[in-house]
Nucleic acid binder design. Structure first.
Length: 741
DNA sequence: TTTCCTGAATTTTTT
DNA sequence: ATTCAGGAAA
C-alpha cells in the first residue's frame, strides 16, 4: 500500500495523474525524486501496472543508482524489473540487441572523447585538413551538436550549401561517421542517434519497445537535447504516458546541447499535457530562497514560478569582499574552522563553489595550511586518466583484438622501441589486406619492410596470447595484476619515482578494486562485461558519505546536491558571469544561462549562504580587476547582514598597490629592458569596460573582451568586427567608447 | 626512436 | 600560470 499522506497537495496530484503526458515543474528542493519514486510505487501497487512496463530515465549513473535504491526501498516485489537507467545505457541495451538492422555488428565498441579525437585527427590527416583552420576540438563540437539536433551528415551538407567552411565540415562529418562505421564503433552521441534511427527504420522494433515501456519517466528533463526528446517522444508515441520532471530555471547545460525548448514547448508537442508546479521548498531558509527568487526573476525566458517555504527566516546572507583571492580563501578556511570548533557543524556540511575548476587551487592551498580536510570534486574523470585508459586498452586487446585504437594505444606503452614508422607500416599492411591491426601484428613477419622491428613486436604479441590462454583461469583481479607485472607497466611507473607516478599506481589500485566489486556483483563475471560497464561509467560517482570533508566543486557539478553551509566564491563580473558570456553575440541569452547557474548555487544552501568576491584575481597569469558580480547586486541589501557591504560600482578599478617586492621587480624589469616606457602615461582609469563597443582609428569598431592591468598600462583585448581579436595597450590604442553594454 | 622545447590554448560536463 | 600537443634535435 502506497502511503500518500507524506506528500503535499501538488506532489500527490502528480502521483495520481498516471495516464497521459505530464509535465512536472519542480523547483529546487521541492521533492521531485520523491514524487517520481512514489509515482512508480503507485502505478504498481494501485494501478496494477506491471513493473516491467516502466522506464525511468536519468542523466547520470549516480542519479540512476540513487533512484534505483529509493525505488527498491518503497516497492517490494518486482522493483528490479523496472528499467531505471541513463539515456545512454538504455540505448546500449537496445542497440546490443537490434543494431544489426542498421548494418553494425552487435559487438560494437563505444568510443569515448579521447577515441573520438584520435579518429578525428585521422580523418583530418586523410582529407588533408589544416587543423590550424579547423581545430579537431571545434570539429568534434560541431559534429556532436549536429547529432544532438539529429542532423545527419547528408542533411548537414544540404544546409551547408553555399558556405565553403560549412561544406568542408560536412565532408569531415561524413568521413568521421564512415570511419566509426568501419571500426564498428559508436561515439556517445551515436548511442542515442542510432537508437532513434533504429526506431524510425524498424517499426517492429519500435512497436516492441512501445508496448514494453508503457510508462516513461524522465528526470532532469531540462537537460535533454533534441535527439533525446525525439527518442522519448517516439517511445511514448503509442500510449502517451510520458512524465517529465524538470526545472527550466536549473537548465545549465546549453553548451552541451540541452534544449530548453523541450520544457518550454512540451505542452505544444503534447497538447493533452497536465502541468503541475511544485513550488514548496523543503530545503532552504526563507532568506536563501528569497535571494534565489529575486535573482532568477531577472530572467526573461522562463516559466513563472516562485519557491516558498515553511522553514524559518534563517541567518542573513553573508557577503565578504577581499583584496585578492588569497585573502578570500584564507577567510573561508578560517570561518570553516571556527564553525567546526564551536561544534556547530562538521566539515562535510560545507561546500565551496566556484565557476571554473582553476579557482580550486587557492582553496586547496589555504585549506592545506589551515588543516581543513577537503575533497575536490570533478576535474579529470577517473576513467579518462592515462593509466586507467592504458590498463583498459590492454584488457580490450586481450578481450578481442578488434579494437585498433586500443592496440595502438598500448603497443609502445611501456616503451618497447616500436615507433611511429613501424606502426604505420603495420597499419598500411593491415589496411591493404583487410585485417585488424592486431592481426597484422600477429603475422608481423609477413609485413614488408619491417626488418628488426619484428623482433620487438613479437614479445608483445606473445604477451597478449599468453593472457588470452590464461583468461579462463584467472580472476579479473589476478589478470590485471599479472598483466601489470608481465607487461612491465608497473615497473616503468616505479622507475619514474615521481609523486605523479605514485598517484597513477594508486589509481590503478582503485581500478582493481572496481574490478573486484564487479566480480562480486555480477553473476557471470567476464572481462567483456566489465569493459562494457566501465565504458558507460563516467566517474567514481560515489561521494562517500562517511567522508567528513569540505567539498570543493564547480557550480555545475553541485547540481542535485545540498549542504547546510554553502560558500559561492569568486563572485565577480568576468568570472561569474564569465567574460565569455558577457562578450558573446547574444549576451542576454548567455547571461541568463549564467544566472540560472547562480540560482542553482544559491538553492544548494540549507542554512547559511556566504558570497565572496575579490578585488584582484590572478587569471591565466594576469591580474584582473573585476567588479562585484551583477548577480550579487541583484540581491537586495535587506537580505544581507549588516556587516555585508558591497563595494561601490566603479568603471575600471584602480590597480592594487602591489607589494614592495613586486614594485621593485617591476622597476628592475622596466629599467633594464625598456627605459622609454616612462614616457607612457598610464591612464588613471578607462572610460570603457568589458562588453562595451569601442572604435579604433585603424581597426574600426569592436567589442571589449577583456581589460588587464599590465603593470605600465592597461592591456585591452578587443574583438574587432573587421580585424578580429587584437590585444593592445590602452594608452596607444586611444579607443573611443561607442556604446555601453 | 625518444627527448626536449616552443607555441598555443585555456568556462562549464555526462555519457 | 600551466598544461598540452606537435615539431625539431639528440
Amino acid at each position: 500500500m502506497t502511503d500518500l499522506e507524506l506528500l503535499n497537495k501538488e506532489q500527490k496530484e502528480a502521483v495520481l495523474h498516471t495516464e497521459g503526458p505530464l509535465l512536472i515543474l519542480a523547483g529546487a528542493g521541492s521533492g521531485k525524486t520523491r514524487v517520481l519514486t512514489y509515482r512508480m510505487a503507485y502505478l504498481i501497487d494501485e494501478c496494477g501496472v506491471n513493473p516491467w512496463n516502466i522506464l525511468a530515465i536519468t542523466f547520470t549513473n549516480k542519479a540512476a543508482g540513487e533512484m534505483r535504491e529509493r525505488v527498491d526501498r518503497i516497492i517490494g516485489y518486482g522493483s528490479e524489473s523496472i528499467w531505471v537507467s541513463t539515456f545512454h545505457s538504455a540505448c546500449v541495451r537496445i542497440l546490443r540487441r537490434y543494431i544489426d538492422r542498421l548494418g553494425f555488428d552487435q559487438k560494437f565498441t563505444i568510443y569515448d572523447t579521447e577515441d573520438q579525437k584520435t579518429v578525428m585527427k585521422d580523418v583530418c590527416r586523410r582529407l588533408q585538413i589544416d587543423t590550424k583552420m579547423y581545430r579537431e576540438r571545434m570539429l568534434l563540437n560541431v559534429v556532436s551538436h549536429a547529432k544532438d539536433e539529429y542532423i545527419s551528415p547528408e542533411e548537414f551538407r544540404l544546409k551547408a550549401q553555399g558556405d565553403f567552411r560549412q561544406e568542408k565540415i560536412a565532408q569531415i562529418y561524413l568521413e568521421y561517421q564512415k570511419e566509426l562505421k568501419k571500426n564498428n564503433a559508436l561515439d556517445f552521441d551515436d548511442l542515442i542517434v542510432k537508437t532513434v534511427e533504429l526506431f524510425q527504420n524498424c517499426p517492429e522494433v519500435l512497436e516492441y519497445y512501445q508496448e514494453r515501456f508503457r510508462y516513461i519517466m524522465v528526470d532532469e528533463y531540462q537537460d535533454t537535447n533534441t535527439v533525446q526528446f525525439k527518442l522519448v517522444s517516439i517511445l511514448a508515441g503509442k500510449y502517451q504516458n510520458l512524465c517529465v520532471v524538470g526545472d527550466d530555471d536549473q537548465s545549465i547545460y546549453k553548451f552541451r546541447g540541452a534544449n530548453i525548448d523541450n520544457i518550454l514547448n512540451f505542452e505544444k508537442v503534447f497538447p493533452e499535457t497536465k502541468v503541475i508546479k511544485l513550488e514548496q521548498n523543503y530545503r532552504s531558509t526563507q532568506n536563501i530562497l528569497n535571494a534565489a527568487n529575486v535573482v532568477i526573476r531577472n530572467n526573461q525566458s522562463r516559466k513563472e514560478k516562485a519557491l516558498w517555504t515553511q522553514n524559518e527566516q534563517g541567518e542573513p546572507i553573508q557577503f565578504h569582499y577581499f583584496q585578492n583571492a588569497y585573502e578570500e580563501a584564507d577567510y573561508v578556511a578560517g570561518e570553516i574552522q571556527k564553525k567546526v570548533k564551536s561544534t556547530e557543524a562538521e566539515y562535510r556540511d560545507f561546500a565551496i563553489l566556484y565557476r571554473t575548476n582553476a579557482q580550486s587551487r587557492m582553496f586547496e592551498e589555504k585549506f592545506l595550511l589551515a588543516n581543513v580536510p577537503y575533497k575536490i570534486v570533478g576535474g579529470v574523470n577517473f576513467y579518462s586518466r592515462k593509466e586507467i585508459k592504458d590498463v583498459l586498452a590492454y584488457l580490450k586487446t586481450i578481450d578481442n583484438g578488434k579494437d585498433d585504437l586500443a592496440v595502438h594505444r598500448i603497443i609502445n606503452v611501456p616503451k618497447r622501441g616500436i615507433g611511429a614508422v613501424t606502426i604505420n607500416k603495420v597499419q598500411t599492411y593491415a589496411d591493404s589486406v583487410g585485417i585488424s591491426f592486431f592481426e597484422a601484428l600477429e603475422c608481423a613477419g609477413g609485413v614488408p619492410g619491417l626488418g628488426k622491428a619484428v623482433l620487438k613486436i613479437q614479445p608483445f604479441v606473445h604477451l597478449i596470447h599468453e593472457f588470452r590462454l590464461k583468461l579462463a583461469d584467472l580472476t579479473l583481479e589476478q589478470l590485471i595484476e599479472e598483466l601489470l607485472d608481465k607487461s612491465g607497466y608497473t615497473e616503468s611507473l616505479k622507475e619514474e619515482g615521481t609523486d605523479e607516478a605514485e598517484a597513477r599506481l594508486e589509481n590503478i589500485g582503485e581500478l582493481i578494486s572496481k574490478a573486484v566489486t564487479y566480480e562480486e556483483g555480477a553473476e557471470h563475471a567476464e572481462l567483456s562485461g566489465f569493459l562494457e560497464e566501465v565504458a558507460l561509467v563516467a566517474d567514481i560517482d560515489s561521494l562517500e558519505e562517511q567522508d567528513n570533508r569540505v567539498l570543493l566543486m564547480t557550480l555545475h557539478s553541485v547540481k542535485g546536491l545540498e549542504f547546510p553551509y554553502v560558500c559561492m566564491s569568486g563572485m565577480e563580473d568576468g568570472i561569474f558571469p564569465g567574460y565569455m558570456s558577457i562578450a558573446a553575440e547574444n549576451p542576454t541569452e548567455e547571461i541568463e544561462e549564467e544566472r540560472r547557474l547562480c540560482y542553482v548555487g544559491i538553492t544548494r544552501a540549507m542554512k547559511e549562504l556566504m558570497i565572496t568576491a575579490a578585488r584582484v584575481r590572478m587569471i591565466r597569469g594576469e591580474n584582473q580587476y573585476n567588479q562585484v558580480s551583477r548577480f550579487v547586486r541583484e540581491i537586495p541589501q535587506e537580505l544581507f547582514g549588516k556587516k555585508s557591504v558591497l563595494p561601490p560600482v566603479q568603471k575600471v578599478q584602480q590597480p592594487a598597490k602591489d607589494s614592495a617586492h613586486a614594485k621593485a621587480k617591476e622597476i628592475f624589469r622596466t629599467k633594464t629592458f625598456d627605459p622609454k616606457q616612462f614616457k607612457v602615461v598610464k591612464a588613471e582609469r578607462l572610460d570603457y569596460e568589458v562588453g562595451d563597443r569601442v572604435s579604433h582609428i585603424k581597426f574600426g569598431e569592436g567589442t571589449v573582451l577583456n581589460i588587464t592591468e599590465g603593470g605600465r598600462d592597461f592591456e585591452v583585448k578587443v574583438d574587432f568586427d573587421r580585424a578580429g581579436e587584437k590585444k593592445m595597450f590602452a594608452s596607444f590604442a586611444k579607443l573611443k567608447k561607442v556604446q555601453s553594454l
